[in-house]
């Protein structure tokens, strides 16, 4: 994962609340088995509308999304983060994020900057006055700046540290492998295991057929 300290880029206003992950990437695009190449799928349904913000010239190279509250609700699909990243987004700003989306973003180096709703509206106003303006997001200072306007954002210390260091979570956990093994030795013997597999008797499943 690349280290993240500051980022300056074109900010894209998306003043809607409850942008769920089905909107960020519709399910039909989840059939791919790769981790990259999802840029065409980002906001796919909304992008068919020529007036959608990403279809406007000033925003095509956007890398900071300034969204309404409760961004990333719904499905746990990490494809939503991959699609945002593949399109070129480095930062999403909102007053509230869904937990799973926020967690997925942290693992993938996409910064979720939690900015108070009043400040989000201030940023929208600035962007409305001058579409295509760039913002600077400093993870070091936990601030978003645009000309004279600087607003703070919140992010938990641990995620901030990991993003700034570009650390891989699995690598970090495997340093504690001895603790995992020790924990496993204390687990009760009756805890279920999936193997060896136990079943009810096997039965032939009949295939349903189209009714017409």
């Amino acid at each position: 994962m690349d280290k993240f300290t500051t980022h300056t880029g074109v900010a894209v206003p998306l003043p809607r609340s409850n942008v769920d992950t089905d909107q960020i990437i519709p399910a039909v695009y989840l059939k791919r088995v790769t981790r990259t190449g999802f840029e065409d799928a980002l906001f796919a349904a909304w992008r068919s509308d020529p007036d959608f913000v990403l279809n406007k010239d000033q925003y095509r190279n956007g890398s900071i999304l300034v969204a309404g509250p409760d961004f990333g609700t719904g499905s746990s699909r990490e494809h939503a983060v991959w699609a945002l990243k593949d399109y070129g987004f480095k930062v999403v700003i909102a007053s509230r994020f869904a937990d799973i989306f926020r967690g997925n973003s942290g693992k993938q180096g996409l910064l979720t900057a939690e900015v108070a709703q009043g400040d989000v509206e201030l940023l929208w106003k600035v962007l409305e006055e001058e579409p295509g303006r760039t913002l600077t997001v400093s993870l070091e200072d936990r601030t978003v700046s645009c000309g004279d306007v600087t607003v703070p954002f919140e992010i938990d210390d641990y995620t901030r540290w990991r993003l700034m260091e570009g650390l891989d979570d699995i690598g970090l956990t495997l340093k504690d492998e001895a603790a995992i093994t020790a924990f496993e030795s204390t687990r009760e013997a009756w805890r279920p295991t999936t193997l060896p597999a136990k079943h009810l008797p096997p039965v032939e499943i009949e295939s349903a057929r189209p009714s017409r």
């Binding site: 699909r77 997925n104 641990y158 699995i170």
Partner: peptide, 20 residues
Amino acid sequence: FGIGTSEVEHVLATQTLPLK
């Protein structure tokens, strides 16, 4: 609870998750 794909990989590799 539901998790993302990076966490799926994490659980596959370690049978644990770092969580607050």
